[in-house]
Every structure is written in structure tokens, then in C-alpha cells.
Design a protein around this nucleic acid. Structure first.
Lengths: 162, 162
DNA sequence: CCTGCTCGGTTGCAAATCGAAACCGACCCA
DNA sequence: TGGGTCGGTTTCGATTTGCAACCGAGCAGG
């Protein structure tokens, strides 16, 4: 991943990367449609029930049913019964699902920056001090924040081809 | 945004949030389909030409044409002529497009974690020291990394309803 | 017992979107 | 003249979507 500014200066470092061995592609196979991330956002926000999500998003019920099943199959959500007679289920994030929070945060911040003319509709704050938070790339070795221009990409151990 | 572990303990803090005023929803309106983020990933990687992206992704040409136009309309990419006779254009990231890199990084890291059995196909490293990088949420006030359990969400200045 | 209501879906169907392939115009080369 | 490249557009059948109707288990009121 190499960030290039508006001027378009070429800083590409990695060689040709096959789409078949790209973690972005793997991820988008699962959450890359128009509804799935919105559903997950609702669950992050505390929505757990079918009808709750359906009313909030206005998604068609057949699609919501399909997407929830898919998320359960992929183990981003789990179905937990919350009553018997009749047995009803709610949907909860698994660790795998909760692990998507950095992605949702990144998308939120991009929308904040480029589409929230009057300021962010929602801000994330530190529970201890209440200050608004940042998301950044850090170097655990240098123990500092790394700007986009100092990120290089390299083939990793999982690279099978090329 | 409140992260909840697999146990499902409820830590919701913010009140009801309308989907109409959500930056995640705004963002997904633009990049929330099956191809757009993959196209942007290719451009981040250095692909600039129609045929290059088309060959790499295997996307139908009509769809690529449509998605590129849309990205140009939304000013994530710009069309730059790279030759006359016949005039041909390439696509470059604008600042707005380049600003999506944290989101792509987050998606990549999630795929790395949950789908790269043999290790990440691509790793991001610090240009200075070569160490693999992390992405994290930081508190500029406390000057420290904030774990998912210490993030709270609050209505921001751009919240219009409720 | 009968009627109506909620929840969490499923089914059916029309409309929108997608994908593959054919085609196109401007230009190059032989 | 004939073919090839690049960056698309057009066409058309297949897939996916969105809407609305329906459903079954249970509950509540009369």
C-alpha cells in the first residue's frame, strides 16, 4: 500500500500483486456489498434484533435475512436465543465481527472529513479523558506515528505467487 | 461506535442514531459496492490505466467504465491525459481518494488476521526502520494508544436530528 | 372460541443491476 | 489493405434487488 498525493508522484515499491492473494479482496468478498457493513454498524451500535435493524435501515426483509445468515455463516455474528415459546434469536458480534471496528472507524472518519460539512455527526472520544480520538498507523519499533508517505508495502509470508 | 466482545456485554453509550446522519452510511454510498474499493486498491498499487485495472480485476468493461466515471465525479480520482493523438487518459488518486488509505489498511489487516492462514500476503512496513506497522486508535491528549474497550461515541456538532 | 397483534422470517414477482461478448473510433504499424 | 491497441459503448440474457403478500408460533382481549 503506497499513498500517493494529488500530484500523483509515483512511490510504488512493491511488485505486481495478484488479486487472488490480497487481504482486501478476501475481506470484500465477505463484507463488500451495499448492506453488510451497515448491518454491522447497527449491531456495533447496539441493535440486536431483526426488526430493529430492519426498521433502522429500511432494508428489505428477505435481504436482511440473507445477510444475517451469511454473517452468521462467516462467524461475524452469532445467533443467541433470547426467549423460548416462541424461540427468538438475537444477533451478537463475535470477536471476528468486533475486529472490524477499525475498518468502520476508518470509513466513518473519511465520511466525516469529506461529507460532514457541519462537523461529524458522531465523534469517538477517550473514555478516560473525553478527548476526541485519532486513528493512525504506528511503528511499534520506533514507537511513533507514521505518516502516509512513510509507509511501504512488501510481500509477506503468505504470498504464494509472484 | 462501541466495541463489544464475544461475550456481548452491553457498553452502548450513545443514544439512537439516525442512519441519515451517519458518516459510515455517507461513505458507503460512494464506495460501498463490490468493485469500487478493489479499483481504488489497484490505483493505490500504481495501476492507472483502464486496461491495466480491467485485466487485473477481470471486471466487465462497462462496469469499470461506470465505476471510474463515478469515482471521477465524486473526485476520488482524476482523469489526466497521458498522450494526444489519440488522447488517452489515466486515472490518479486525488487527496480525497488517497485519504481512503486508512480504510483500505483496516480492511487489509482484518483479512490478514482472519483469512491469511499462512501469514499476510502483503505487509506494511516503516520506510525508515523496515518494521511491520500497526494501525491503532490514539488519544492525542493522553498521547497513548486507546484499546477498543476505552472508546466511547458521542453525538458530534454535525448531528442534526436527535 | 374468535379476532387481531408481534416477531422473524419466506415466497413470488417486477424492476434494476451485472457480466459476457460484440462492436466502435481513433490511431499505429507493416 | 489488414491487423492490432486502447478506451470505451451497446446489446442482451442472467443474477440480484426491492416490494408486497403471506405464514406460523405465540400472546392478549373479549
Amino acid at each position: 500500500m503506497v499513498v500517493r498525493g494529488a500530484a500523483g508522484r509515483d512511490e510504488a515499491v512493491s511488485e505486481d500483486i495478484d488479486a487472488d492473494v490480497c487481504s482486501i479482496a478476501s475481506t470484500l468478498d465477505i463484507i463488500g456489498d451495499r448492506w453488510t457493513l451497515l448491518i454491522l454498524r447497527d449491531v456495533f451500535r447496539g441493535a440486536r434484533r431483526f426488526s430493529e435493524i430492519q426498521a433502522d435501515l429500511g432494508i428489505a426483509k428477505n435481504l436482511l435475512s440473507d445477510r444475517l445468515s451469511r454473517l452468521v455463516d462467516h462467524e461475524l455474528l452469532e445467533r443467541v436465543p433470547y426467549q423460548d415459546r416462541p424461540v427468538r434469536y438475537e444477533y451478537r458480534l463475535t470477536q471476528k465481527g468486533a475486529d472490524l471496528s477499525p475498518a468502520l472507524i476508518a470509513l466513518m472518519r473519511w465520511g466525516d472529513r469529506w461529507y460532514a460539512a457541519n462537523g461529524a455527526p458522531t465523534v469517538l472520544v477517550h473514555d478516560r479523558c473525553g478527548a476526541p480520538l485519532d486513528q493512525s498507523v504506528t511503528c511499534p519499533s520506533c514507537n511513533e506515528i507514521v505518516g502516509p508517505g512513510h509507509i511501504r508495502s512488501r510481500p509477506g509470508p503468505g504470498r504464494t505467487r509472484t
